[in-house]
Nucleic acid binder design. Structure first.
Length: 583
RNA sequence: GCGCCCGUAGCUCAGUUGGAUAGAGCACCUGCCUCCUAAGCAGGGGGUCGCAGGUUCGAAUCCUGCCGGGCGCACCA
């Protein structure tokens, strides 16, 4: 609908010779907006004010001229010049009627843009370390990333979703050691648990379930001999590193690798199951270890070396990140010969491009913002455009229960898992609450509100509108009546009430909202839109009866509410929230 | 100290990339079920858009400087 108006404006401007090379001409469609105030019509453009100075004309004069050249359209009732130079469009009812027909015809596909082949998106999100269950912060990443994927897909782009599994490196050693110590404990050894180890109960559960028939007996004395003191007396990091070396010696590398592998595969399986239960599935679980195994790290480093982007200093290999705007150069190979996490990241993003993705969209915690510049630097140094990497940062989540902030300390083991949250408030409320706020805004998640079955709770408010439409159609059946869609669509002109007009206008905005939310990576636009739509429906519901005796009016009203149900369902589907027929 | 994000109604937040009189929800008041689900509707009060300058026809939005909050600044991941 909006693009029709923009097209009219475009045609008019083409007829004004002085405007031929005005620079603003490229942004005509951007200059056409919905009005905020219905007295100003349905659409407005400020193009005359934007162009006025480049052609040295009075904005109102120019606007008048544009209006004069506007081609006639059956979709526009009236065009007005207003204020300092706005051109306001009053859209004909026929255009809204056609939109209702389009909603019903397209069904679940209404609002989806036509498919494009490029750019190919790869969205990476969650990517939490497989060292424990997901907590409520990861839940926000999951909901946001999944919704973003749905939105961009609805905007017509091919999207793949990927989870980067950090299954390599020191933290896997720490995980393995944590499980091993619990296994020894379960054998009755009174071994001290390392301060830097993972303390959650799930470690004990893994320890109990891992095959321990090969596990050598290790006494406390043997374990603790020549170990440095643990915290608080000593350094917990030094202690656990020593303990990891001990594990290698006493357990043997093969057995230690086995324990580590068991631990992380069980945890990642649990994460996958948790996300699946949350309605989120990935196209790929990408193993960090595979980067080394398949030579991608050495390939990436070789490429950087060939391009002269690496140098040696203090026994380490450095990448010239400062050449590409990073604050400092970064180590890629440590003095001890091991590659850094950053090297993995460069290789991982290099691999993404090699696999054919044009646009790399990473959803990261806001605490990772510092690392964006260096990954981008890496891509640029390898010859890719820096803007092929986009990073959306997600701020932290605070849980509240009755005005009381819940402590989220991982150390104390008192953190709330995503699974607990889902069980308490349900998937629908969780998915909805997570994307209700802008991702760069801290989120206060109110557990009590999410559980409330009342109008306080926006998710139920929207779902209720959907259920109410379904209920109306059930009533129709009970009265042995039928909705005749064809006559309904033909008689939409019978819908003359202000509530009906408002509802039609709001419905017609849906495709624009999808585009807006997708382009801005801002699911909250869709959330707010759905709330507005539900509100207009509830108002209409209270003001008028749909199942009236008069056939034409009844069929038309039913067409309108059927379209409303469809749009609500489509929007909720993108958010990953169910659209129930009864509540 | 340097960098990124955020300061909008009592509370939680939107604000269509610079538009017309700054909007919702909650909370607080007043009404509405003989009627398709009251998980609903109608109405009311509530603002120095952190502060100060600047850019222009026009600023919550863009620029600069302060103030306040969060996060980051590893040969950790």
């Amino acid at each position: 609908m909006k693009s029709n108006i923009a097209h009219l404006v475009e045609q008019a401007l083409a007829l004004i010779p002085e405007l031929a090379d005005a620079p603003e001409l490229s942004s005509i469609s951007k200059s056409v907006e919905r009005t905020r105030d219905s007295r100003h019509g349905d659409f407005t453009t400020n193009i005359a004010m934007r162009l006025a100075k480049s052609v040295d004309k009075n904005p109102r004069e120019l606007a008048a001229q544009i209006i004069e050249y506007l081609p006639a359209s059956k979709f526009v009732d009236k065009v007005e010049l207003a204020g300092p130079g706005f051109i306001n469009f009053h859209v004909a009812s026929a255009a809204f009627h056609q939109e209702i027909a389009s909603i019903l015809d397209n069904g679940d596909n209404y609002g989806r843009q036509k498919a494009k082949e490029k750019p190919r998106y790869l969205i990476e999100f969650v990517s939490a370390n497989p060292t424990g269950p997901l907590h409520v912060g990861h839940g926000r990443h999951a909901a946001y990333g999944a919704t973003l994927g749905n939105l961009i897909e609805a905007a017509g782009y091919p999207v793949d979703r990927e989870y980067y599994l950090n299954d390599a490196g020191r933290q896997m050693d720490i995980l393995g050691v944590s499980v091993w110590v619990r296994m020894l404990e379960q054998r009755g050894e009174r071994v001290p648990f390392p301060e830097a180890g993972y303390k959650g109960d799930y470690i004990g559960e893994i320890a109990a379930s891992v095959d321990n028939s090969q596990l050598p007996d290790v006494s406390v004395d043997k374990l603790c001999s020549d170990l440095p003191p643990d915290a608080p007396a000593g350094d917990k990091e030094q202690f656990i590193d020593a303990l990891i070396r001990k594990a290698g010696e006493l357990l043997g590398e093969d057995l230690f690798r086995y324990v580590r592998h068991e631990a992380h595969t069980r945890i990642s399986a649990d994460i996958e199951d948790d996300l699946k239960g949350f309605g989120i599935e990935f196209d790929r679980w990408f193993s960090e270890q595979s980067l080394t195994d398949e030579g991608l790290i050495s390939d990436a480093l070789q490429l950087l070396k060939d391009r002269g982007m690496l140098y040696e200093k203090d026994g380490a290999t450095w990448f010239r990140a400062t050449d590409y705007g990073d604050e400092k150069d970064r180590v890629v190979v440590r003095e001890n010969g091991k590659t850094t996490y950053f090297a993995s990241d460069i290789a991982y993003h290099y691999g993404k491009r090699k696999r054919g993705y044009d646009h790399l969209l990473d959803v990261l915690g806001s605490d990772h913002h510092g690392y964006v510049a260096r990954v981008r630097a890496g891509l640029e140094a390898m010859g890719y455009a820096g803007d092929c990497l986009e990073v959306e940062l997600v701020q932290f989540v605070s849980l509240y229960r009755a005005d009381k902030k819940l402590s989220m300390s991982t150390r104390s083991g008192s953190f709330v898992t995503l699974r607990q949250l889902r069980e308490e408030v349900g998937n629908d409320a969780a998915r909805f609450f997570y994307v209700m706020r802008s991702n760069d805004q801290h989120l206060d998640f109110d557990l009590e509100l999410a559980k409330k079955h009342s109008n306080d709770n926006p998710v139920y408010y929207i779902q209720y509108a959907h259920a109410r439409v379904a209920s109306v159609f059930r009533q129709l059946n009970e009265k042995s009546m039928k909705w005749d869609k064809g006559p309904g669509l033909e008689n939409l002109a019978a819908l003359a009430e202000t509530h009906e007009k408002a509802l039609m206008r709001t419905l017609s905005r849906y495709p624009e909202i999808i585009e807006l939310a997708a382009n801005n990576r801002a699911p909250q636009h869709l959330v707010h839109y759905l709330r507005d739509l539900a509100s207009e429906f509830h108002t209409y519901y209270n003001a008028h009866t749909f199942i009236v005796d008069e056939d034409e009016l009844r069929n038309a009203r039913l067409a309108l509410i059927a379209a409303t149900r469809q749009v609500i369902a489509n929007g909720l589907n993108i958010l990953g929230v169910s659209a129930p027929d009864s509540m």
